[in-house]
């Protein structure tokens, strides 16, 4: 069984939970940017959390199936069209052989997920099917989907769940405003008090320069302490001697536009990380469309860990449905 891609959409890639364990050699974790939505889609079609799905960005693919296929679409609010007729998202759908699936214009959010019963069956590379396009690794030939691709689907691994739909209370919101919780560090001491204040008290707007590597914001800018740059650091005050980057870390190259690194970001470099978006909020960031008005709120490690527990409980609730 396979999906035949008639039109690929802007950026459609195979993604799973990510490629964990190679960050130290420069291979990012990758994986679906909005894990919660991707997992909900897998749940609905009787997959495990580990199966690969298609991540669609802003515009979806047009594809046909060559056999009866069980699917679910979750994530950003998008019209799901089977042979031109609209069907609900967040719900299991049955396609017949020869059916065409396509998507309308997004009503909110940025990324949506298509899970297929049996999972997308591209080969695993370093333990994951996730596409890391810059490294030409994983997914289908290490790249985004293109017209004419035939995407293999695996054999079902489990029974279909009784539940056919993710209840409203477990679906995320896709809003035009966003609060992201961050923890300060490691280099916030290079900001002035005013620079720190602006980051967490002013509003920042997500720009269209936002992809799987990083999401760039515009706003009032920050201020750096003027210092004599150490040997090995660049001349700009936002430069440091190279260091490892955490997923979610916030850099402000030149001091004007903060960039939050996401799952396909490089693992190190020479920009000061003034803070890090907490892991529980990385899915929220992945849901944001350009223009989303964003506030960064500083939290403690205890609050970040509590948020992580709450996220885990939410995921467990989806899997227990």
């Amino acid at each position: 069984m396979a999906l035949t891609i008639e039109q690929p959409g802007l950026l459609t890639t195979v993604q799973d939970q990510g490629r964990i364990g190679y960050y130290h050699v420069g291979i990012p974790q990758g994986g679906a940017m909005d894990q919660e939505s991707a997992q909900a889609a897998n749940k609905l079609v009787g997959n495990t959390a580990a199966e690969a799905v298609l991540e669609c960005t802003y515009t979806g693919p047009v594809l046909t199936v060559d056999a009866p296929t069980t699917i679910a679409v979750t994530g950003a609010d998008v019209p799901v069209l089977v042979n031109g007729e609209e069907h609900p998202a967040w719900r299991r759908l049955e396609l017949a052989a020869g059916d065409t699936l396509k998507f309308g214009v997004l009503r909110g959010g940025a990324r949506f997920y298509l899970a297929v019963r049996g999972g997308i069956a591209v080969p695993e590379v370093l333990g994951s099917r996730s596409t890391y396009a810059i490294g030409r690794l994983g997914g289908l030939d290490g790249r985004k989907l293109e017209a004419g691709d035939v995407v293999p689907v695996g054999e079902p691994t489990g029974l279909l769940p009784e539940v056919e739909e993710i209840p409203e209370r477990l679906r995320p919101a896709f809003s035009r405003s966003l609060e992201l919780r961050i923890m300060w560090g490691l280099y916030d001491h290079l900001l002035t008090d005013e620079g720190r204040r602006r980051l967490v008290e002013e509003e920042w707007k997500l720009t269209p320069v936002a992809d799987r590597m990083g999401l760039r914001f515009e706003g009032p800018g920050v201020e750096w302490i003027q210092r004599r740059q150490p040997f090995g650091a660049g001349s700009d005050p936002s430069n440091i001697v190279d260091a490892g980057y955490a997923v979610g870390s916030i850099q402000v190259p030149g001091g004007t536009q903060p960039i939050v690194l996401h799952r396909d970001a490089v693992s190190g470099g020479g920009y000061a990380m003034v803070g890090t978006v907490i892991s529980a909020d990385m899915d929220l960031l992945a849901r944001a469309a350009p223009g989303t008005v964003t506030r960064f709120r500083a939290v403690s490690m205890d609050e970040a860990l509590q948020a992580r527990r709450e996220r885990t409980e939410r995921l467990e609730e989806i899997w227990a449905l």
Binding site: Y58, V105, P208, G291
Partner: peptide, 8 residues
Amino acid sequence: IQSPLPGV
């Protein structure tokens, strides 16, 4: 003619 995408 509608925009299918967000962007500039």
